[in-house]
């Protein structure tokens, strides 16, 4: 296995773990953590292709990685501010319970309601 493939496999694993977390957890902040992990997996690919690609002197991979880090920081800041605002409004961070666009009152707990997808 070439080093490039090892790096790509690692980033696949990181992406899959992040995806699993974002799909299965109910707390909004944990879902955000999963998204961060997926962004990092993508970033790892950029660096791996820069290092083992044909033109390491062009630095395109590094540039991409720097911009992705910047965008991820902005995303985390806005996302967490949104979560805090939502928590203030609904008094919960449970994504299964935050399913209304209007009306500040909470819906009754959808305990065993069928039809709610895993990724709500």
């Amino acid at each position: 296995m070439t080093p490039l493939k090892a790096c790509l496999l690692l980033s696949c694993a990181l992406f899959a773990i992040g995806l699993a977390g974002a799909l299965t957890r109910r707390h909004a902040i944990i879902v955000l953590i999963g998204v961060e992990l997926m962004l990092n997996a993508a970033n790892l690919n950029f660096i791996a292709f820069w290092r083992f690609g044909p033109h390491p002197e062009a630095l395109s991979g590094i540039m991409f990685a720097i911009f992705v880090i910047g965008v991820a920081a902005a995303e985390a800041a806005v996302g967490l501010a949104l979560i805090i605002a939502i928590h203030r409004h609904f008094k919960t961070c449970d994504l299964d319970r935050i399913n209304r666009l209007k009306d500040s009152s909470l819906p009754e707990v959808p305990a065993d309601q069928p039809g709610a997808g895993p990724n709500t």
Binding site: A20, L23, R25
Partner: peptide, 14 residues
């Protein structure tokens, strides 16, 4: 209420 319903589905999908 830690995990969403369909936890197995999520892990399987990933």
């Amino acid at each position: 209420t830690l995990f969403s319903r369909g936890r197995a589905l999520g892990w399987g999908l990933s």
